[in-house]
């Protein structure tokens, strides 16, 4: 006698905004009638913070996990204790995505030290000798689009041996001149990061040019705060010794889930940066960093 419990949201992409109604069905499939002691739905929104072992000690990282911050939590009973007939039963439900008080629904984000996750859980309590059934499904929350228009200001950059900062002996470097621009550093999260890059000249052959998307997560706690930068993705835009003087497009799509609008709260911060990485044939690596501000419109 197998019973399966499933949750199906109406929206295929499972994306909801604050104030919208989370609608869907609980699906119970069974050959025979199922006796149960109530079916409940739980919606939960949590921010999980973790301290990296780098910024605080290993033990602290282990023990001093910051308490998760609850953003939203509500519970409804879908069905009173009773019997579900055999076959496939669909029980529709609706949840208003409404926060209490002055709390804000942050956007879903999967990071390393910061995780903002929204889940919907369905539980079916069953009488003795039968296991309780439970099914969890994640849904995405997008924050309210920003009302104001985003100013797209291009950022020009030039990379030469002289512009490099942390080099000890500048004289030994090969000569090169790389110019380019990013169309904006205030980016709309749904739009790709765009720009152009021209290798005007280079003494040494170029092996690869890459765009590195980096998240900078900051967790505040009693002892101070921890700030960590980790790579999200690395996109190669040029391979091999590219043609000099020919503009190469800079183009990167922001990955879903792993990026969110730049977030700053009292307890934690999520920021993003992009590095333009130029790898020379002798594996010398040059990086130019651009902080980004992501938003949703």
């Amino acid at each position: 006698m197998s019973v399966t419990l499933d949750l199906r949201l109406k929206r295929a992409n499972k994306v909801y905004l604050e104030g919208e109604v989370l609608a869907g069905v609980v699906v119970i499939t069974s050959k025979e009638a199922v006796q149960h002691q109530g079916i409940t739905l739980t919606m939960e929104g949590l921010v999980n913070l973790q301290l990296s072992s780098k910024s605080v000690g290993v033990f602290e990282a282990f023990y001093n996990s910051v308490k998760p911050i609850s953003l939203i939590s509500s519970n409804i009973e879908v069905a009173k204790p009773g019997k579900v007939p055999g076959g496939k039963t669909e029980i529709p439900f609706e949840f208003p995505l409404q926060v209490k008080g002055n709390k804000v629904l942050y956007e879903t984000y999967h990071g390393v030290f910061v995780n903002i996750q929204y889940t919907l859980r369905c539980d079916m309590k069953r009488p003795l000798l039968a296991k309780d059934l439970s099914k969890t499904c994640e849904f995405m929350v997008h924050c309210q689009p920003q009302k104001s228009k985003v100013q797209l200001t291009p950022v020009d950059f030039t990379i030469t041996p002289e512009t490099l900062q942390n080099v000890r002996e500048k004289g030994s470097l090969p000569k090169f001149l790389i110019r380019g621009h990013l169309d904006a550093t205030n980016c709309v999260i749904t739009q790709p990061l765009t720009g152009e890059l021209v290798v005007e000249s280079s003494e040494v052959a170029i092996k690869s040019i890459e765009l590195q998307l980096v998240r900078v997560e900051t967790c505040g706690c009693a002892e101070g705060y921890a700030r960590d930068a980790t790579e999200i993705q690395n996109i190669q835009i040029a391979e091999g010794d590219v043609c000099h003087g020919l503009p190469i497009p800079i183009y990167m799509v922001f990955p879903r889930l792993f990026t969110c609008p730049t977030l700053e709260t009292t307890n934690f911060k999520v920021e993003f940066e992009v590095n333009v990485v130029i790898v020379f044939h002798d594996d010398h690596l040059i990086t130019e960093n651009f902080p980004l501000k992501l938003c949703r419109v």
């Binding site: 040029a238 391979e239 091999g240 590219v242 043609c243």
Partner: peptide
């Protein structure tokens, strides 16, 4: 966009 992207390929034959 893809057309422009090809500019990033260094080897002319590729």
């Amino acid at each position: 966009r893809l057309t422009a992207m090809i500019r990033g390929i260094g080897d002319p034959l590729v």
